[in-house]
């Protein structure tokens, strides 16, 4: 890396270190290791697919090639994006707490801990995306629109980091924040069309302000884009793409500026 300035090089090697540590620590002392990272989304898909698809008889819309109506896959395309948002937000608070003792004794750019955690999360998400794409290839339900899945994942990552930057600073002060955020994220799961469909909202005449909130909140936009790309095989609507990009960019920027401003104070927290 000859062209990088020393401070950038330092940050890069720290991000690499924290990413490696996060990946290793996650499945330390486990025999099956990375296998567990697939078990979590898989069981969620199976359980939710059973409860909503079989018990309640929810119908997933037809896939882009018209030959599958699979509620499990409908869930999976949504969950893969949603879990990036929640894992990065929840993770950020832990990643910052994890290095705060260290930061009191030695100087290093604190944001590298969060960025490193995000890199570890991105690698795991990439594996899940490969599984999803593989399944879709087997079902011959695939098109070039799959590139928008990665656009949605990157947006979800930036948005999650932006929120994570802010809440992790709050959490460094009051540990209550992590529990509060955990609950809020559980609630907002139902603001995102993961276990329900747009059609269900249409059928029940959900409109007005609530509908705007349900349709245009950032995680819902990311999920819709991913689903257009992987399930319906359509190019996402341009205004949704634009709104999602704006949400991701603005949230990340605000979080970044706030974190850079506050991170020196972390070393003085008792």
């Amino acid at each position: 890396m000859p062209t990088l300035s020393p401070s950038v090089r330092k940050s890069v090697s720290l991000i690499y270190h924290f990413a490696e540590r996060e990946s290793k620590a996650r499945y330390k002392r486990s025999i099956l290791g990375w296998f567990w990272s697939f078990m979590n989304p898989l069981t969620t898909v199976l359980v939710y697919g059973f409860v909503f698809g079989v018990v309640y008889g929810a119908k997933a819309p037809a896939t882009g090639n018209g030959n599958a109506e699979n509620f499990g896959l409908y869930l999976f395309t949504g969950l893969i994006v949603w879990s990036v948002v929640t894992n990065v937000i929840n993770g950020s608070m832990g990643w910052l707490v994890g290095v705060s003792d260290l930061r009191k004794k030695i100087y290093f750019p604190t944001e590298t801990a969060l960025l490193g955690g995000a890199v570890a999360n991105a690698i795991q998400t990439l594996l899940e995306a490969v599984v999803l794409i593989g399944i879709m290839i087997v079902l011959t339900n695939i098109s070039w629109t799959f590139v928008f899945l990665f656009a949605a994942l990157i947006q979800a990552m930036l948005f999650g980091l932006g929120v994570g930057f802010i809440v992790s600073v709050f959490n460094a002060r009051y540990r209550d924040v992590q529990y509060l955020i955990g609950i809020l994220l559980n609630v907002s799961f139902f603001l995102v069309p993961i276990v329900y469909t747009q059609k269900l909202l249409d059928d029940n005449n959900v409109d007005g302000l609530i509908r705007v909130l349900l349709d245009w909140n950032p995680p819902a936009l990311f999920v819709e884009i991913a689903r257009d790309a992987m399930y319906f095989l359509e190019v996402p609507q341009w205004n949704r793409l634009l709104a999602a990009t704006a949400w991701a960019g603005v949230t990340f920027s605000i979080g970044w500026v706030y974190f850079r401003d506050q991170s020196m104070a972390i070393s003085e927290e008792p």
Binding site: P6, R9, L14, H17, R21, L102, K105, I106, F108
Partner: peptide
């Protein structure tokens, strides 16, 4: 800087991993 006991060391990492971590903090690669 060597400022206090175990400064810059992460208790859960091994000595070797901590050496790499400290190097990274000083801008030295693996």
């Amino acid at each position: 800087a060597l400022l206090e006991l175990g400064s810059g060391f992460h208790p859960d990492l091994t000595g070797r991993e901590n050496v790499y971590l400290n190097g990274a903090m000083l801008g030295l690669g693996r």
